[in-house]
Nucleic acid binder design. Structure first.
Lengths: 302, 302
DNA sequence: ATGACGCATTTGTCTAGGACAAACATCTGG
DNA sequence: CCAGATGTTTGTCCTAGACAAATGCGTCAT
């Protein structure tokens, strides 16, 4: 009967809401209303944690916290789009993402990998990335937002797709032609699929990619660029990354890099970021490829 | 002349020290001593951030904060082991990690991958994991601690090694024989190499591994175990994970899982964790393999 | 000499409420 | 219909105190 309780640190971990925010909401909006343990510390019932997760999801969709927190439970639940009419897509053309997504929904990891490998073989890597992986990632993001995808389903998708892309990249000849491109992301940005997609495209074009994974402290990015004699530092920001931090981060990093090193930033997170001096914003994969072409024209092999 | 300053959030990102700790140290030990900006908020000079990073590294090596913070700068620097006599390992068997590590140090990613692929081909996957990857990971951890590895070098190593392991795993036939094993880690635990190593070994033994990546909220692990009808949930904790949190996490997760589902925990982080009801602690890769054998004996195929 | 126990100190995390600036929405005038 | 001013919302930072868990150390017994 006694369902599990969570302390404030656990709730921060599980919901992504900071301790400061959790305390502030309690004070300001009267929710959550944790119990107190023997030491007077907050102890959150599982049900409230669940509701907080829902609220966080709705916030990520653009809803305002004030509204959501004032809302009674049932109204809140009504707001969360369940599974907005299975969208019986006409399986129109050749590439229907729904088909492979269904495999993830059925928790059929092997089936998913098989299906994707077939597509890769059929389409070739470039089209596979642009016409299959990218839309799929988009769809998964949407599904996650409207609640029709569980967290662990999204994780499974991400993990398996990472493997596919890395495998495909490994099969390419080590590019020694184009610029040396250092690929990474800043701390607190752990999404890696975007980086892998551009790495696949750049490698395919013969560029030399240096993948450093995610979450590099800014100072280390600077050091790495020097050590690897990188021509370009490319960062990825997901839609989930707090957008207001991006300009500051880019500016700070720009100062840490040699002026001859180009700084590129891409991913869903830069969509609404204002352009700034010394930084190339890449809004789509096509723009990324175009930027590579431009760089090559500006730096003829000598 | 005006070297860059960092606000408290940036320092938390770059050093891994929480805001609470930064303020507490200032209050208690008189270091750091950030300036204040126009709004009365802390503004840390780059030099202090650098020193904080050093202190954090020494703490991870086992030094006590109180001592380090009372120490003058020069004494502190002297304490940081430069490169403590390369441990001239007797190169006992056939596999000397130093050789491939040097390639990382030279930032030769391609060379590293080639060398490792050769070893994989020569040794076979099991020996490759146990006799090459595992010791290598250990050595990199040590090198990182004593400062002879930069952060970005460690990232490069991790990224490339991840690729190698994933590639090797993908080449294996999808195991349909043994138990269904769900592999993941808890939030705040982002180290994935350990998971990949056991996945390689388990897959090799024909078990059906479900890799969910890292950082799964506990409740989601519970849901995923149900959805995938997992027989075993295996978690990995790195040495860097705060050990005091582990027993609580395991206990909480144990409550979320069906009693028939086994809970295994491994990795360097569980070394000093006390054994507890309903949880199997696996201290080495060999123990993990033994646990798999045990499970199979206890669950004969029917 | 070595291992176990208990006490003292160290150290991180929690608590409280106040303040403020940046982000956002809404209203007003061109 | 767009631009700019005004008001509201909301997250982060601040101070300062309390306490428990982890760690180190001294004592005692074997």
């Amino acid at each position: 009967m006694n369902s599990p309780h969570f302390n404030i640190a656990a709730v921060e971990r599980d919901t992504g809401l900071s301790k400061d925010v959790l305390r502030m909401w309690e004070r300001r909006y009267g929710f959550p209303t944790p119990e107190r343990d023997g030491n007077g510390e907050r102890s959150y019932p599982a049900a409230q944690v669940e509701r907080l997760r829902l609220i966080k999801r709705l916030m990520d969709m653009g809803h305002r916290p004030g509204k959501l927190l004032a809302m009674p439970a049932d109204e809140l639940a009504a707001l969360a789009p369940r599974r907005p009419a299975p969208t019986a897509r006409p399986t129109s053309g050749s590439e229907d993402p729904g088909e492979v997504l269904a495999l993830i929904k059925q928790h059929d990891g092997h089936g998913y990998q098989q299906a994707m490998l077939q597509r890769l073989a059929r389409q070739g890597l470039q089209s596979f990335v642009q016409d299959t992986v990218a839309p799929l990632t988009q769809r998964v993001g949407e599904a996650w937002e409207d609640g029709s995808f569980e967290v662990f389903e999204e994780h499974l998708f991400t993990e398996l797709t990472k493997r596919l892309l890395r495998q495909a990249i490994a099969a390419l000849p080590g590019g020694a032609g184009g610029p040396r491109i250092l690929l990474t992301s800043v701390p607190d940005e752990s999404h890696v699929l975007g980086l892998l997609m551009v790495e696949a495209l750049f490698s395919l074009e013969g560029a030399e990619c240096i993948p450093l994974g995610t979450q590099m402290p800014l100072m280390e990015i600077g050091r790495a660029a020097t050590a690897h004699r990188a021509d370009i530092v490319a960062l990825s920001f997901s839609v989930a990354f707090p957008q207001r931090q991006i300009p500051g981060l880019l500016q700070q990093l720009r100062l840490l890099l040699a002026p001859t090193v180009e700084l590129w930033a891409g991913g869903g997170g830069v969509r609404r970021v204002a352009r700034q001096e010394g930084v190339h914003l890449l809004h789509t994969l096509d723009e990324a490829l175009a930027a590579l072409t431009d760089w090559r024209q500006a730096h003829p092999t000598n």
